[in-house]
Amino acid sequence: MDTADIVETPVRRRCGSEDVHRRLLNESLNYRLNRAAIENLAFAFATGQEQPSRAEVVTVPVVVHVVFGADEQNVSDEQIDSQIAVLNEDFRATNADVANVPPVWQGLVADARLEFRRASVDPQGNPTDGVTRRRTDVLSFSDDEAVKFTARGGADAWPADRYLNVWVCRLGGGLLGYAQFPGGPPATDGVVITHTGFGTTGTAAAPFNLGRTTTHEIGHWLNLFHIGGDDGTGCSGTDFVSDTPNQAGQNFGTPSFPSVTCNNGPDGDMFVNYMDYTDDAAMFMFTHGQILRVEACLAGPRQGLITAAGSPPPDSAPANSAPANSAPANSAPANRAPADAAPVGGE
């Protein structure tokens, strides 16, 4: 849940504190209402009441906010691009290791038809390389959202309806990354990744050096839950996806197939799914049911990204105009002209 849910009861009335209290309560209420609407739409897609209507691959403009307290945390452009390359495989199911999906689940492997590219136009309409860099005095950040605010030692978000915000920093407590579900406050919308779990080169360190932390967190950002159901190790939790097996908790490391829990034999837990907790080298797939939730997310709370990505680039490269299923992944040249964020006048 977001920090808007954290409401500390004021111990005594102070100037301003009532206002803060009311604001947090209101934000929390808004969040709950947003989440209900988002889940209702996901349910409509899951049950066939609504059908995905998106014809084309959507390219998501990405801004990477590098917030570094030491030079080594100032990840290189190469490390950033190595991460984006991973996303462009994982969200098109063109990752080489998809071949390692056990045969029983090969038919469930889904292409999310999402691609990612560093933004080339900033919120003011100026050219950008899609990366902001800021030195900070903060030794390590936590999941308290400070990295998302310039005033707290981090970097302010770009408008969340047009960009995927990715913060790269040093996270404390051993945390690899965290995300925010759609429907939360725009100022904190996006994903946060510790620099040693980001990309495939530079400071990325095994066993989290294949870029899958970012794939996992973007899964949350697109409204996917953990396939273990977020009920600890119980069997009654759900990820609201029909084609992922019911499983107990999350898996870790590199399990061997099959790993049976919750009477889900003979095939067992789908620990090869990006929304499990296995090592980078052990997760390779989203399912069709998960991508239905992503479609609902793109039709609902994140539809602004389709608009942002949909304005034709000046040189009208045809890569996105072919039918989705015939367009080869990553076919666009790296220097293709921008199709992303149109100028906006600020939030």
Binding site: G174, Y178, F181, Y277
Partner: peptide
């Protein structure tokens, strides 16, 4: 050691405020 799962814990603050932290659905 790095982990996808947040470590549980707690925080004591001056003045009596306390915060308990448990694993959440988006990894924070």
């Amino acid at each position: 050691p790095p982990s996808r799962a947040p470590r549980p814990g707690f925080e004591l603050r001056p003045g009596g405020a306390y915060v308990e932290y448990a694993a959440g659905p988006v990894d924070g």
